[in-house]
Write a protein that binds this DNA or RNA. Structure first.
Lengths: 107, 107
DNA sequence: TTTCAATACTTCGTTGAGCGATATATCGTC
DNA sequence: GACGATATATCGCTCAACGAAGTATTGAAA
């Protein structure tokens, strides 16, 4: 899973959100580092919906603008959690050079 | 940086290695999870060499088989370390849900 | 008043990484 | 003699990322 896709899922952990809201939330969560391009976002949402990791959770019109809400499925929560663990382990390969094989015990 | 590329660099932290050795080392480091496809490996090495993150460190013929050694540059070491920190922070967004903004203080 | 930034979704086209497949070659084992 | 491990080169496909352009509303600033 790529970083943009990961942050789309992570942004939805706080509850359903719409496209633009996800972009803003991902930027917050990453301290400004991850700025999802619109093409990336909507492409990722379509893919994730196809994979059953998110579902459309209704639409709403606010001040003349359409909002389409997306919600994490249970599969989606599992996937993003597994991905976080995977990244943590991968990071430790480099950051934990003094005891590089420590995490491998539980893997 | 993608996971395959990251593990190519990580495999070289122990010292210079050749293509096939990198594949095996990456598999070890990831507890068997990361199996670099040959096309991925040599493509990544070319790219990384072009970016100055690795350099060719001599060739050797062992039992009739050519070995081309690659070595991490200082830039490469920096890049893989930065990448590890980035992944750790990204992982914490999900795993550290009880105090999600904790790391943002130092970021 | 009109222009600009923010909000909000759609779609197109390009780029490039990942990767399977194929080719070539040696060596040891079964 | 066939197969698996070791070892590199290269082609071509697929798909994610992403910039860009299009459409549309609202509010603030100039």
């Amino acid at each position: 899973m790529s970083e943009p896709t990961y942050f789309v899922l992570a942004a939805l952990l706080d509850g359903p959100s719409h496209g633009y809201g996800i972009i803003k939330r991902a930027e917050e969560l990453s301290a400004g580092r991850v700025r999802l391009a619109v093409g990336t976002l909507y492409g990722a949402l379509d893919r994730l919906a196809g994979d059953g990791l998110v579902v459309v959770d209704g639409e709403e019109t606010v001040q003349g603008r359409l909002r389409r809400y997306y919600r994490l499925t249970e599969d989606g929560k599992l996937a993003v959690t597994r991905e976080a663990v995977r990244m943590e382990q991968a990071a430790r390969v480099v950051t934990g050079r003094t005891a590089p094989a420590a995490w491998a015990v539980w893997a």
